[in-house]
Deep mutational scan, measured.
Amino acid sequence: MAAAAAAGAGPEMVRGQVFDVGPRYTNLSYIGEGAYGMVCSAYDNVNKVRVAIKKISPFEHQTYCQRTLREIKILLRFRHENIIGINDIIRAPTIEQMKDVYIVQDLMETDLYKLLKTQHLSNDHICYFLYQILRGLKYIHSANVLHRDLKPSNLLLNTTCDLKICDFGLARVADPDHDHTGFLTEYVATRWYRAPEIMLNSKGYTKSIDIWSVGCILAEMLSNRPIFPGKHYLDQLNHILGILGSPSQEDLNCIINLKARNYLLSLPHKNKVPWNRLFPNADSKALDLLDKMLTFNPHKRIEVEQALAHPYLEQYYDPSDEPIAEAPFKFDMELDDLPKEKLKELIFEETARFQPGYRS
């Protein structure tokens, strides 16, 4: 834990890192770190609560700039109880001085990944967590956004079992017609939660990839272990087919990539493993919904509104309290091709509203 900075004593240090967030945020305490930044909790002297502050230093890398800009653009436009918001952003007053960006968010005690390492969940908890994931996802999908990296560590939890989806750095506007060349190379989302079509096709992607990830998360809540822990690309596919069985001819016809289709045709026939054999203690309604989410063919996979209306979630289902976005989200430009200098300018502009004396 960093010592509390005395008023006016300059930035606090946390594990050798400068955290320049005073005077409003003090009493910093280390939480963890990701690929390009550290997260601390801090005391907000204005709202009198502890908050989470993520320090991001992305400006050396085009990919990190892209992810940072995506996350900020999306989260500043989203407003939903099951999606983490941005409360404040701290950065230098000029673009030349801006080396880091500090993002202030609600402090959540833990995440689903940490929880599943230590606790076996009751059916009631599984049901409530799944409902909140789908409630947040309904809003995301209504904005025409794909999260693309749903996994237990991106689901934040607090002691009252509130759940918030975080990390929109890989999110995209849904565009089933656009052929994202190089899709697989830039697709760094965790393999275990990846839909089979991501490994088999490169053309376009749809909201059904997020539903697949939610199915993987439900299976993990039922058993405290990942359902498809593939060691590499082909191993991942083999794990999936080992449980779902061989795809039907109709399902194979959806695979545009001939090499991928021929690979699947070359494999020995596998039978589907019954879900109640894998999860003998699970609620039968939970397994019915799991089956509809972990469907090989993305066109037959359940959609988020149908999933919310499934009998497993009937005690929570309330369409009048499951809000959607006001308007579909649009990125003005494809960020993939922009140089990091341009992305830095866009991050600077996007964060201006939090600067003292800002006038829109």
Rank of each mutant, 00 (worst) to 15 (best):
N201D: 04
R50A: 09
Q236C: 02
E33H: 04
I211P: 06
Q119M: 03
G37S: 15
H120C: 03
T181D: 04
K99W: 00
N87K: 15
M333N: 11
D318Q: 01
A171Y: 01
V145N: 05
S246R: 13
I31V: 00
L234F: 04
N27G: 10
H232P: 04
L265T: 09
D88K: 05
H180D: 10
R172P: 08
L75V: 07
K73Y: 12
N297R: 07
R70G: 09
N27C: 09
L200S: 11
L287P: 00
Y102N: 14
I95D: 02
Y312N: 15
G357I: 04
E197N: 06
H141S: 12
Y128D: 01
P23C: 00
R277H: 07
D336W: 10
H239P: 10
F296R: 05
K272E: 00
R148I: 11
T181H: 10
Y102R: 05
E96P: 03
C216Q: 04
P298E: 11
Y131I: 10
L157Q: 14
K300E: 02
E71G: 13
E350M: 03
L343K: 06
Y139V: 04
L308T: 04
K164D: 06
I31H: 11
N123R: 02
I302V: 00
D235L: 04
T94F: 08
G182C: 11
T181P: 01
I83S: 00
G182R: 13
Y316I: 07
A307M: 11
K231T: 10
F228C: 00
E305T: 10
R24M: 09
N297M: 06
R91L: 14
L289S: 12
A35Q: 12
T351C: 03
D179P: 06
L267G: 00
P274N: 07
R148D: 03
D251T: 09
C161Y: 05
K231D: 03
H61S: 06
D44G: 00
D210I: 03
E12D: 15
F279S: 10
D337F: 09
A7T: 13
P196G: 00
E334D: 15
Y128N: 14
L267P: 08
P176A: 06
M293N: 02
L157M: 13
A2G: 08
T94H: 09
C65R: 14
D167C: 10
L335R: 10
R261E: 07
D124C: 09
E96H: 00
P323S: 11
H299Y: 14
F59H: 10
H61V: 09
L121R: 00
H180F: 04
S41R: 04
H180Y: 11
A195W: 09
T26S: 15
P323G: 07
Y312R: 05
D167F: 07
I198H: 11
P311M: 00
L121P: 11
K340N: 14
G22A: 12
F296W: 05
W275P: 09
G22C: 06
K48W: 13
F354C: 11
F331Y: 15
I140D: 09
G245D: 13
P226G: 08
R91I: 13
T63P: 14
E197W: 01
M199C: 07
R301P: 04
L115K: 00
L237N: 06
G357N: 05
Q66P: 12
E71C: 06
Q306D: 05
D106K: 02
N238S: 11
R70P: 00
D167E: 11
D332Q: 02
G22P: 11
S29V: 10
R70Q: 03
I324K: 03
R194P: 04
V14E: 07
L69F: 03
T63D: 14
P93D: 01
H232N: 13
P11F: 01
G37C: 15
I209S: 12
Y317N: 14
K138T: 02
V104L: 11
P247W: 06
C65D: 05
N271Q: 04
P280T: 14
K344R: 13
I255E: 02
Q355R: 02
R24L: 14
I324N: 13
N271V: 10
A286L: 09
L294Q: 14
A52D: 14
H310A: 03
Y64V: 15
L75S: 07
P319C: 07
V14L: 12
T181L: 12
L76M: 13
T295Y: 02
L278S: 05
K300F: 12
G22R: 13
C166A: 09
L294D: 10
T63Q: 14
N253P: 04
Y193D: 03
Y64F: 14
V273H: 06
I256F: 14
L294C: 11
